[in-house]
Design a protein around this nucleic acid. Sequence first.
DNA 1: TGTTTGTAACATAACGGAGCGATAAATTCA
DNA 2: TGAATTTATCGCTCCGTTATGTTACAAACA
Lengths: 254, 254
Amino acid sequence: MNDDRMGAIAEYVRAHGEVRIDTLTNHFGVSRMTIHRHIERLAQQGVLRKLHGAVTAQPSSIYESLYAYRAQSEPEVKAALARAALSEITPGQAVALDDSTTATALGPLLAQAAPLSVITNSLALMQTLASVDDIALIAVGGDYAPTYNAFIGPGAEDALARLRVNVAICSASGIADGAALVQDGLVTRAKAAMLDAAERRVLLAASPKFGRIALNKLAPLSSFDAVYTDSRLADATARSLRDAGVALHIVEIS
Amino acid sequence: MNDDRMGAIAEYVRAHGEVRIDTLTNHFGVSRMTIHRHIERLAQQGVLRKLHGAVTAQPSSIYESLYAYRAQSEPEVKAALARAALSEITPGQAVALDDSTTATALGPLLAQAAPLSVITNSLALMQTLASVDDIALIAVGGDYAPTYNAFIGPGAEDALARLRVNVAICSASGIADGAALVQDGLVTRAKAAMLDAAERRVLLAASPKFGRIALNKLAPLSSFDAVYTDSRLADATARSLRDAGVALHIVEIS
DNA sequence: TGTTTGTAACATAACGGAGCGATAAATTCA
DNA sequence: TGAATTTATCGCTCCGTTATGTTACAAACA
């Protein structure tokens, strides 16, 4: 598929609410079949809903937590945050990484900090790190959640309770009232277990997450030893967070 | 790489013990660079050892347990055993699969028996099954062992102790004195934990494994509810096993 | 029932990646 | 130090994959 066009279709449909398929074929100048293939995949991912001859957008709250969607949103920001997170890691340490796509972006960079022990419940990270020499991969098992491409549930929590690491690097769905928030309850517990196992806690959060809410409270921002975000964060917000004792680090997007 | 030629090189070196690189370039009619690339990879896999201008074979006991080697040996036999194992599985059950390459061959077939819950410590199986709808994947975490492409160690054992499944399907490195044997100690414990968690235990073992020894004793053959092997097994062996109370099933290789 | 819309199957074109060789630089051995 | 060997890098070619369009047919609508 053409991912750019797929994204554009999603945008277009979200902007218009409901769109006829003919409109899409004209607008993008491709065949009807191609549009069909694209919207079929988007519907599978849960981004759109198919009607007869038209498509409608899903309520945004639903698909924003989808792995497939998150994986391709704002890759430059993720890359920048991942690079910053690398500075938190020293060769020889044990590092825990959660199932966030930002942490996934960190995977390929970890070889630079080898040797390391890496603990994760993210299947994507396992695949990336399995083949890397000098990285001891320790998997957290549990029930597989396709939505997050990760293992969660009581099994994951128990497995994490057995471990102790130098650093945990996590992300969150939103940040409000000085706390990191997560949409899914089981994911929250897994992240919390990861943080509990860590000597040092690092939060990676793209700036749009500030002010966005999610269902479950993970931990107060002040409980993190470092919080990284990008430079689009409003100055006033940054200042008030720092005043509240948050170790906020601003990363330039390159 | 050209896997056929890689295999041929491995064969050739094993047959001759030590071989000059020039000899290989002549014998295979490719450039020296290509030979270098191939033996470099084989050396990484632990199949060969590189000297200056020559390569030597590793003692066979070492590389026979390597995942990369096992993965491509006797694929038809594995496929036949996997197909047979499928008959042990009923839709709706919880199934545990170990890190054996035979179980890996079973992966793509499992969709036919969906819905299922599949428990495994094999990374290859996780990748295969993650994308299958109607299969609930439950991962066993632990320390990643590149040699087996699986997760083992105390973490894996604890995780398995939490679970209870209908069927466990395992393989072994060798079979002697009426018991299934496994080369690696930690793998043995993981397999044992898997068997302990199962109501019904199934062993898959290609016929050459009978009579071959390995370091650790996994379980007596009679403790398995079914043992599948291929039709090359000597009749006398089959008879004596059956007399000893082993539920032996012979599978035709197609 | 006719028209529109969805699905399936096949052909083709484009892209990316893998394998390979040639050459040059670096390393090792004697 | 000189020769042999190994590594690194570049570019070429070939193959497989993927995206796309075309066509034909099935299903849904009105």
